[in-house]
Design a protein around this nucleic acid. Structure first.
Lengths: 189, 189
DNA sequence: GTCTATACAAGGATAGAC
DNA sequence: GTCTATCCTTGTATAGAC
């Protein structure tokens, strides 16, 4: 195996273990028993290393989608493809995962699991009340689904906006995401 | 205004401008014409500063929810409350926003808007085909909704999992999120 | 092409004087 | 409460050996 490939492999292993921002080039080099300069020769910047890993993910995902398009359109096949994509994302989780500054702080200072628990109970109460008041028609499992939706949604809408809607105003962005939430809840009215 | 409050205010302003990881303590200090040591006196670690901002958000959000619970349960009131929460999150966007290492790299090296565009067209094709094949029943606006759902979902499920399901296995996690996707699409079968 | 050694800048953190 | 000086780590760059 070439040094370049060894570096990519070990870097991904370390990133998956502790996250992108927590693993420095020195550590990758040390872990492989090579010098920093050597690593710099193959990947002048840490960025270049990350770019290479991102390209690997992209290629793997594209291949899965191409396979899908070669067959007939079916919900089952689509769900199967999407699961493969998710498996692939998981394989490279260290590249994406929330090991940035803010997540470090939250995990260190808050008991996040109990906050999360509280958060879910909270929405459970809100939706149960809405169902009792006849504002929502909820069957078995619907509440859990809506809770999962809104926790993910409420946490990440702004991150997505910062990526996808760089040119939009605050009002436009919030209107867009409020529209999604309304539509989602509207399915249960 | 006390130095401590001035620091918090200026830090948030700078974070909103360029993101948490791009603003150092030296810059915050310089911007206020105080010394780094002085800043360190009020907030020994950058973490402490972030924690304080996070607490402010939490308190503001909690207040909104308490107001909601004081009134009667209605969809309209809930949506109104949620919008206020979103406005509040936006006010503190710099604390959360994707200015971590990976986002920097992506924004620098990829034409992200056109990739995003392609991604949406892609899912548009998939869902249109599924509708034509009779696998999904989609009315006006449903496709756009499902696309928005799956782009946000596909990008952030793993981040949420790393926060909420730290004790679960890969299979359990993927099963959970696949369940969400199935349920969502099942609403249009 | 492959690697080592070394230097430099920037950022977080802290000790000690006033 | 505020400041100066200093330390350590991390990303980055490069001269030069083999």
């Amino acid at each position: 195996m070439k040094t370049k490939d060894k570096i990519l492999k070990e870097a991904l292993r370390l990133f998956n273990e502790r996250g992108l921002s927590q693993v420095g080039v020195r550590e990758i080099a040390r872990s492989l028993d090579i010098s920093v300069g050597n690593l710099s020769y193959h990947f002048p910047k840490k960025e270049d290393l990350i770019m290479e890993l991102l390209s690997q993910i992209r290629m793997a995902n594209d291949a899965r989608y191409e396979e899908y398009f070669e067959g007939r359109a079916s919900l089952g096949r689509f769900l199967g493809t999407f699961r493969q994509i998710m498996e692939n994302q998981y394989r490279y989780r260290g590249v994406f995962l929330g090991h940035d500054e803010i997540n470090q702080v939250i995990k260190k200072h808050f008991d996040y699991l109990s906050i999360e628990e509280k958060r879910r109970k909270f929405f459970h109460r809100i939706y149960t009340d809405l169902a009792k008041a006849g504002e929502l028609k909820l069957a078995e499992g619907d509440i859990e689904f809506l809770i999962s939706f809104i926790t993910l949604f409420g946490r990440f809408w702004m991150m997505e906006a910062s990526i996808s809607f760089t040119d939009k105003s605050k009002e436009e962005i919030i209107d867009h995401y409020m529209g999604l939430l309304k539509k989602q809840l509207g399915l249960f009215v």
